[in-house]
Design a protein around this nucleic acid. Sequence first.
DNA 1: CTGATTTGACCGCT
DNA 2: AGCGGTCAAATCAG
Length: 335
Amino acid sequence: MEKIGEWERMSLIYELTQGQELARQLVAQLNAPSSSDESKEILAQKIEASYEKALSLVNCNATGGTVGMLESSASRCASPPSDDSDRCIGEPEASKKRKSGQPRWTHRVRVRPEMVLEGSLDDGFNWRKYGQKDILGSKYPRGYYRCIHRSVGGCLATKQVQRSDDDPTIFEITYIGTHTCSNVTSNLMSLPAPVTSDEKNQEQGPSPCMEHFYHNQKQSSQDLLVSFQKDLNVENQHLDRTYTNSFPYISTPSNVVFSMSPSVIIDNNGVGNVLPSGFVSPTTSRINFSLPTLDGVAANSAMSLAAVGLDFPFGSSQLDHNFTFDNNGFFPQGP
DNA sequence: CTGATTTGACCGCT
DNA sequence: AGCGGTCAAATCAG
């Protein structure tokens, strides 16, 4: 769908305007000898993040995202609950069939060694590994994970984690299907619930890209993030390329950078039925956003990454506490 | 002992 | 026919 929806347009304008304002602030600081290098760099990072968001918005649309994506995914993926037999527990027909009709999108995740060791990388869901397979043409095996609530809540969300051949620190995580377990997960507040096509049409909500964008947007106003980015600022000096961004899912004690970097893959083969209950329309206040903590379920994903071939032969004391996490729209909010 | 992971085998799709 | 996704028994870990 080539037409940019109102959501996207407003967001784009907002983001570009914010980038412009930040640029002005940066210029002002550059002219003010009293300002610290640190604050300048923070501003620069914010500007970069702002443009990344804007670019991601454009990319969402360019890849068939947003409105059109919602529609296509609605017709193909999000059948009404009553008709959703393949999402039910013990449904034999769904057992070994490929989920060709499921919404599917890929994130590239740069993980740094200590994040695996510390267990700080997580997307907020509880995953259980159910398989691993060597993939033709890939150096590293692909790990298969399903939502831990599959048996209890009938949640059929799965993800595949594969280490990149080119850059071993990058993992490509493909999410398949949406979580239907929001009401059975005690530690997750606003999980995206399955949305029928009708619901989507009524809500006019964002695509996953948009949803994540607004998550970023909401969080970007948080003071906590500012201080958080200060930490990042220091650590970025040790990194060749780490994108900082306003990301709502911050594991508070550790210095984790979640980002929507330009390298993000938005493999939206019909994505879009993710509509978190915590989503706030741009026409409404951008508050009501809570910072999650990922600690409760972090170890699971850490092991997930370790299981797909990430071996770090050095101690945590030598590790740099930073990594980037490219994400678009699948993450829930924590408690 | 219980729950999670591993791994070989099976099955569907291309 | 080959590949990818899933199952399920075996194994491991807490």
